[in-house]
Design a protein around this nucleic acid. Structure first.
Length: 881
RNA sequence: GGACGCGUAGCUCAGUGGGAGAGCGCUCGCUUCACACGCGAGAGGUCGGUGGUUCGAGUCCACCCGCGCCCACCA
C-alpha cells in the first residue's frame, strides 16, 4: 500500500483545524481566484461583495452571505470553461459614521477629542486605524473559505474610487440633480449630522400629550395638543381644516403665542384632521416635517428654537436658551402651568424617531444641506425591475422595492462628518459662487477669488451606490469593466434593499447605461436561537469564528446554508453539527473506500481510473441516484435554493451512499488474501472504479458547499495536481439513470429494514438464531443482497430449516422468519399482533375512502386504481401475517 | 393605517391537492474489522381555530386567534 494511503488510513476523523489553513494557502497560491480580465461580462461570472465596514469583524450575517456567494462563485467557476473567469469582487467600505464613531471613542479614552486635535489630524488617525484594523475582516473571509479575488482588494476611499465619486457628483450636479437647499432634515444630535430618512428608526413610546390654550386676538382662544411643548416656542401659525365649520370664523384672525407673545396667523390647511384632538394644530415649521410643508405652502416664518447641539437656541428666548430639549420641556410646561394654560394632559403612545446610527432621538430641524433628486433617477430603476432586467429573489420583495421607489423622496447626501468623501464643492470667499469641479480650482470661476472646499462629506451610501462599477475602474473603460460588469448577482439581506440595492440600480443605469446585476438575492436574517435579534449589545451574538474553530468552516457553511430560507430563521447549532457530521462522514467514506481498494487490489489499485462500470443492481442504483442528485444540486444552487442543495447532499451521502451503497459493496472488496483469479480481479477493479467514480463526483458536487473537506479528498480521488476549486463541475449522466435498478434496490432496502427490525425486537444477537426465507421472486430480485445486509442465513423458497415464526410482506414478495434456539417468541407474537392491528386500521381507512360517494366516479382513474392496488396489497400483507 | 410573511413532532424547520417528513433531543440495543462527529430499532403530530371549495385539504379560499418584520407626516 502506498505511503499516501497508509497515512490517510491513520486519520480516523476529519480535522478542520489542521486541514483548513493548508488548503487556504494552496488556493491563494494557485491564482484560481484571480481571473484575467478577458472576454465579455456575458460570458464571465461575477459577484461584487457587499463591502463590509472596514473596521468590522465577521458576524453571522457576513458568514451566511459569504457562504451563499461562495457557493455561487465556486459552482459557477467550476461550471465555466477554462480558464474559468469567475470573479468575486472584494473590498471594504469606509463606513463614515460607524468608523468615525469608533475612532472618536478611542480618542475619548485617551482624554482627547476630534475637535481638539482638528480635522487633519483626526482623518490621519482614522487612516492609521484603518491600516491597523482594516484587514481583519478580509482575513476572516479567508477562514470561511471565501474564494474572493484577494489580489484586488478595493476600498471606497481609495484614490481611484474617489475619482469615481467626484465624477458622479460633478455629472449629476451638471444635470441639476444634485443641489443645495435649506430643508428640514433628520438631525442626529449623537453624530451631530443630518442623516437620511432610511437611517431613522421609529420607536413606540409613551409621552404626555399636553393641551394648551392660546388666546386669540379680539377674544376667544384655541386649544392645541402637543407631546413636544418646547417646540411651541418656534410656532409661527395655528391651523384648522378649511372645511371645519366649528372654526370657520377663526381663520384669518391671530392667536397670541403664550410665553413669547408672537402673533400667529390662524390659517386653513387640509393637512389638519378635523376628527383628531381639537382640530386645531400648532404649526412649527422649523421643527416638524409636516409643519415645514405647511409653512412652505403658507409662506410662514421659520423660527429655529433647537440647535444642532440639541439645546435651545437664543431664539427660544432668554429663559430657555441653553437648556436641553428635555429641560426645556419641563420649563415650558411649568411656565404654562403658571399662566393656567395647560388645560389637559394625558398619556399618549406614539412613534418617536431615533437615529439608527447613534441611538439618539432625532431632532427635525432646518439645515442647509446637499440633496440628490430622485425624479429622473428612479423611473429607469423602476422599469428595470418591472421588465425583469433585474430579478429580485424571492419575488415578494419586488413589490416592496417598487412601492418604495414609486414614493421615493430626495436624498440628503451631505453629512457633517470628517471621515468620508468631501464634496467636490468650492465656495468663493469673495463672491460666494458655488464651484463644483473634478479637481480643486485655482480660484473662483466667476471672480477668480479664493475658494474653500465644502466641509461636509458625502453619505457613505453615495459611494457604496457605485460599488459594482467603481471597483472595476469606472469611469475609465477598463478591461475589468468590460469583462465583469454588469455583475451577475447581488446577494444581501433585506435591510439594505433601499439603502443600497435600489441606489446601485439607479446609479448603475444612469452612469453605465446598464443594470449593475441581473439578480438580487435577498437572504435570511439569522436570529439568535431564542428568536431575538443577534446583537453584541444584547449578548445574543454568536461569533462565526468561534463556530468555525469549534466545528470547522465546512460545518458552519453547511449549517448556515441549510438553515437559510426565504424568511428569517433562528440560528441552529444542530444544522452546523449536521454539517460537521457530513464532512466527517464523507471523509471517512472516502478513506474507507481508498484503503479498502488498496487492501483488496494491492499494486493494481494505483492504476485504477474512476469510471462508471456497473456490475450489479446496487451499482446501477447508486449511479442512477448520483446522476439525479447531481442534476438536483446544480438546479438548486442556480435557483438560490441553498437549503435544499445542502440538505440534499446530506441525504445522498448519508442515506444512500454510506448507509447502503458502501455497506452493500463491502464484501465485494475483501482483503487481498489467497490468489486472485483473473475474472475475480476484474470484478473488483470494476467495482473499485465505480466506487471511486461515485466518490469523486460526490466530492466535486459538494465542493461549493463544503469546500475544505472536498478539496482535501480531491487529491486522493483525482490523482492529478489540479485543485478541485479549478476542476469542472460534474454533470448528470442521463444514461446512468436507471429507474428499474432503483425500484429493486428500494425493495431490498425495505426488506432488510424489516428483518433488522425483527431481529432487534426479539433481542437476538447479530447473525444468531434467526434466519429468513424469501420467496423466489424476492430472492432473485435482490440477488442475495438481503442475506448479507440482514446477516441472515437466507435461502429461497423451501430451502431453509426451522419453524416459521413470521411471514413479513415486503414489496418484492414475502420474507419468512425462521426460528432458531433462543428466540423470544413472546416478543415476536406481540409484534405480530401490533402489526396486524395497524394493517387492519389502514385497510379500513382505504376501504372507507373507496366507498365514499363520488370518489370512484370523480377521482382520476390512476388514483382510484392506486388505492385499489394498495387495498389488495394490504390485504395480502394481513393474510401473510 | 398599509404591505409582506409565519403558526406542522419536545426544539429548529422541510413539505409539489391524493399514503404526515428531516436534523437535533428522548427511549431501547450495539466496543459489527470507514466513521461513537458512528450503527440499528422505537416512542412522539386533532398540521393555530372555525367555516367553505373539492370525490379528496397540512396544501386552495374566507374569517378569527397568536407572532414577526417592513413601509407610513395624525399633532
Amino acid at each position: 500500500m502506498s505511503e499516501r494511503i497508509e497515512e490517510l488510513e491513520q486519520r480516523t476523523r476529519f480535522e478542520p483545524t489542521e486541514v483548513e489553513p493548508r488548503i487556504v494557502e494552496q488556493w491563494l497560491q494557485s491564482g484560481l481566484f484571480h481571473p484575467e480580465p478577458d472576454g465579455e461580462a456575458s460570458e464571465n461570472y461575477s459577484i461584487a461583495i457587499p463591502p463590509p465596514n472596514v473596521t468590522g469583524s465577521l458576524h453571522m450575517g457576513h458568514a451566511l452571505n459569504g457562504s451563499i456567494q461562495d457557493a455561487l462563485i465556486r459552482y459557477h467557476r467550476m461550471n465555466s470553461p477554462p480558464p474559468r473567469r469567475t470573479k468575486w469582487i472584494l473590498g471594504t467600505d469606509h463606513a463614515g459614521i460607524a468608523t468615525q464613531a469608533q475612532v472618536e471613542k478611542a480618542l475619548r479614552t485617551e482624554g482627547t477629542s476630534r475637535q481638539e486635535i482638528g480635522r487633519e489630524a483626526f482623518v490621519e488617525r482614522v487612516w492609521e486605524w484603518r491600516e491597523h484594523y482594516g484587514h481583519t475582516i478580509v482575513e476572516q473571509f479567508k477562514r470561511l473559505g471565501a474564494s474572493c479575488d484577494y489580489s484586488e482588494e478595493r476600498f471606497t476611499l481609495d484614490d481611484s474610487y474617489a475619482r469615481a465619486v467626484v465624477e458622479v457628483f460633478v455629472r449629476l450636479h451638471e444635470k441639476g440633480w444634485i443641489y443645495r437647499d435649506r430643508y428640514i432634515v433628520n438631525w442626529d444630535p449623537g453624530s451631530r449630522s443630518a442623516i437620511s430618512d432610511l437611517e431613522v428608526e421609529e420607536r413606540r413610546e409613551t409621552d404626555t400629550l399636553y393641551s394648551i390654550r392660546y388666546d386669540v386676538e379680539g377674544g376667544g382662544s384655541v386649544t392645541i395638543a402637543t407631546v413636544r411643548p418646547e417646540t411651541m416656542l418656534g410656532d409661527t401659525a395655528v391651523a384648522v381644516h378649511p372645511q371645519d365649520e366649528r372654526y370657520r370664523d377663526l381663520v384669518g384672525r391671530t392667536a397670541i403665542l403664550p410665553l413669547v407673545g408672537r402673533h400667529l396667523p390662524i390659517i386653513a390647511d387640509e393637512y389638519v384632521k378635523m376628527d383628531f384632538g381639537t382640530g386645531q394644530l400648532k404649526i412649527t415649521p422649523a421643527h416638524d416635517p409636516n409643519d415645514f410643508e405647511i409653512g412652505a405652502r403658507h409662506d410662514l416664518d421659520q423660527v429655529s428654537v433647537i440647535g444642532e447641539d440639541g439645546r435651545m437656541t437664543a431664539e427660544a428666548g432668554e429663559r430657555f436658551a441653553g437648556l436641553t430639549v428635555m429641560e426645556a420641556r419641563e420649563a415650558v410646561v411649568a411656565a404654562l402651568e403658571e399662566e393656567g394654560r395647560v388645560v389637559a394632559r394625558e398619556e399618549y403612545e406614539h412613534e418617536v424617531p431615533y437615529s439608527h446610527r447613534s441611538g439618539q432621538r432625532i431632532e427635525p430641524l432646518i439645515s442647509l444641506q446637499w440633496f440628490m433628486s430622485m425624479d429622473e433617477l428612479a423611473p429607469p430603476a423602476i422599469e428595470a425591475v418591472r421588465d425583469g432586467r433585474v430579478k429580485i429573489v424571492p419575488d415578494n420583495h419586488r413589490r416592496v422595492y417598487l412601492d418604495w421607489m414609486e414614493n421615493i423622496r430626495p436624498w440628503c447626501i451631505s453629512r457633517q462628518l470628517w471621515w468620508g468623501h468631501r464634496l467636490p464643492v468650492y465656495y468663493c470667499d469673495t463672491c460666494g459662487h458655488v464651484n463644483v469641479a473634478r479637481t480643486p480650482p485655482e480660484g473662483c470661476a466667476e471672480c477668480g477669488g479664493h475658494v474653500s472646499q465644502e466641509e461636509d462629506v458625502l453619505d457613505t451610501w453615495f459611494s457604496s451606490a457605485l460599488w459594482p462599477f467603481a471597483t472595476l475602474g469606472w469611469p475609465d473603460d477598463t478591461p475589468e469593466l468590460k469583462a465583469f460588469y454588469p455583475t451577475n448577482v447581488l446577494s444581501t439581506a433585506r435591510d439594505i434593499l433601499f439603502l443600497w440595492v435600489a441606489r446601485m440600480i439607479m446609479m448603475g443605469l444612469e452612469l453605465t447605461g446598464e443594470v449593475p446585476f441581473s439578480d438580487v438575492y435577498i437572504h435570511s436574517v439569522i436570529q439568535a436561537p431564542d428568536g431575538r435579534r443577534m446583537s453584541k449589545s444584547l449578548g445574543t451574538g454568536i461569533d462565526p469564528l468561534d463556530e468555525i474553530a469549534k466545528h470547522g468552516a465546512d460545518a458552519v457553511r453547511f449549517g448556515l446554508l441549510a438553515m437559510s430560507s426565504s424568511q428569517d430563521v433562528r440560528y441552529s447549532a444542530e444544522k452546523v453539527q449536521q454539517g460537521q457530521a457530513l464532512a466527517n462522514k464523507l471523509f471517512n467514506a472516502a478513506r474507507f473506500a481508498l484503503t479498502r481498494i488498496h487492501a483488496s487490489l494491492g499494486e493494481r489499485a494505483e492504476s485504477i481510473e474512476p469510471a462508471a462500470m456497473p456490475r450489479t443492481v446496487e451499482d446501477r442504483w447508486i449511479l442512477s441516484r448520483l446522476s439525479q442528485i447531481l442534476a438536483d444540486t446544480g438546479a438548486r444552487i442556480e435557483s438560490y435554493d441553498f437549503s435544499h442543495a445542502a440538505l440534499g447532499l446530506y441525504d445522498f451521502v448519508y442515506g444512500e451512499l454510506c448507509d447502503w451503497y458502501i455497506e452493500l459493496v463491502k464484501h465485494r472488496l475483501p482483503d487481498l488474501s489467497g490468489g486472485l483469479e483473473g475474472a475475480e480481479e476484474e470484478e473488483r477493479v470494476a467495482l473499485a472504479a465505480t466506487l471511486l467514480y461515485v466518490l469523486r463526483e460526490t466530492v466535486a458536487m459538494a465542493h461549493p458547499v463544503i469546500p475544505f473537506v472536498t478539496e482535501e479528498l480531491w487529491r486522493y480521488l483525482d490523482g492529478g495536481d489540479e485543485l478541485l476549486a479549478g476542476a469542472p463541475y460534474p454533470r448528470a449522466q442521463e444514461d446512468l439513470i436507471d429507474l428499474e435498478g432503483e425500484v429493486v434496490l428500494e425493495r431490498t432496502i425495505e426488506a432488510v429494514t424489516v428483518i433488522r427490525g425483527w431481529r432487534d425486537s426479539v433481542g437476538a444477537r447479530a447473525g444468531l438464531f434467526i434466519s429468513a426465507r424469501l420467496n423466489a421472486d424476492c430472492y432473485a430480485a435482490t440477488s442475495g443482497l438481503l442475506a448479507r445486509m440482514a446477516r441472515l442465513d437466507l435461502s429461497d423458497d423451501g430451502q431453509a430449516d426451522g419453524a416459521v415464526v413470521a411471514s413479513i410482506p415486503v414489496p418484492c414478495g414475502t420474507v419468512e422468519i425462521l426460528s432458531g434456539e433462543g428466540l423470544d417468541l413472546g416478543a415476536a407474537e406481540r409484534r405480530r399482533t401490533a402489526a396486524r392491528e395497524k394493517l387492519q386500521a389502514e385497510i379500513e381507512r382505504v376501504q372507507a375512502k373507496l366507498e365514499k360517494p363520488g370518489f370512484v366516479e370523480r377521482a382520476p382513474a390512476t388514483v382510484v386504481e392506486g388505492e385499489r392496488e394498495r387495498l389488495r396489497q394490504l390485504g395480502a400483507e394481513l393474510e401473510a401475517l
